[in-house]
């Protein structure tokens, strides 16, 4: 029995992306409230509140430090939630994939389309914070615009990792493991709230294996106008996580749906 093994990237994936985009456009009001409202509360509450005591961190106002970290972490969160809850809903209770697989669309197209959508949604969420940060005076350089394409890469990377979990899930409860054991630790440890150099030596080594560390290391200098250090190295880590996640997800979902 011969089966095609290597993942395919085809333009049919765009039809899947488009489906999700059209649904998002229908529900745009609540989703924009979330995208703008949440960071506004965080940045005002923590940035100004805590910032008052902290003053400067790593050579910049705490508000700018926090805002640049949040842009990266919100791209992570947005992609992860989309790739878990929304993808699972479409795959299992809503049977959207069953309908898709009755057309020339294949599992590979579905996975790639979903990840492109995760990346898009992350970019939207990240831009919302960027806009809020601009109004709060936390953005000092035009290089902040470069973080927009970067958000797309970050979203793709975290979407691909989360979708591995979705491919293995048999219920929404399963996602709590990933959130508690992977997403939350990254949110706390990878430099969103404080510089990673303040962590113990051993911990600093460990977090080099976590993608959010690299996302923050790229987004913060771009947004705050500081010098980028080893940008290609960080980018490569994100791309590698994304590529491995994509391939693994395709294999797992093929195994789950094409039986």
């Amino acid at each position: 029995m011969k089966r095609r093994r290597q993942p395919l990237i085809r333009h049919q994936a765009l039809a899947v992306w488009q489906r999700n985009f059209l649904v998002w456009r229908k529900l745009i009001a609540p989703s924009l409230v979330v995208h703008f409202g949440e960071p506004l509360i965080y940045l005002l509450g923590l940035g100004y509140g805590l910032g008052l005591f902290i003053g400067k961190m790593a050579g910049m106002p705490y508000l700018a430090f926090l805002a640049s970290g949040f842009i990266a972490s919100s791209a992570m969160n947005t992609a992860s939630f989309e790739a878990m809850w929304s993808v699972y809903t479409r795959m299992v209770p809503q049977r959207t994939y069953e309908a898709l697989l009755a057309t020339p669309i294949e599992v590979d197209d579905i996975v790639v389309g979903e990840l492109l959508w995760c990346a898009t949604k992350s970019t939207i969420a990240g831009c919302a914070i960027l806009i809020v940060a601009v109004f709060l005076g936390a953005v000092s350089d035009l290089s902040a615009l470069l973080s927009i394409p970067l958000l797309f890469v970050i979203g793709f990377c975290f979407g691909a990792l989360a979708m591995i979990v979705t491919a293995l899930a048999h219920g929404y409860e399963f996602f709590s493991y990933y959130i508690t054991l992977v997403i939350t630790p990254m949110f706390i440890l990878c430099g969103v709230f404080y510089p990673t150099t303040t962590l113990p030596e051993g911990m600093q080594q460990v977090i080099q294996f976590l993608p959010l560390t690299h996302a923050v290391a790229l987004v913060r200098p771009l947004v705050t106008g500081q010098e980028l250090i080893a940008p290609f190295q960080h980018l490569l880590v994100l791309i590698a996580f994304g590529a491995v996640g994509t391939c693994l997800t395709i294999i797992l979902i093929r195994r789950r749906l094409i039986i």
């Binding site: 649904v23 229908k26 809503q94 049977r95 069953e98 309908a99 009755a102 057309t103």
Partner: peptide
């Protein structure tokens, strides 16, 4: 599949549309 139409057993319509 490009030349085939399928009516599946379960409802697979898109509820958001």
């Amino acid at each position: 599949r490009a030349r085939t139409g399928v009516v599946p057993q379960a409802d697979t319509l898109d509820p958001d549309f």
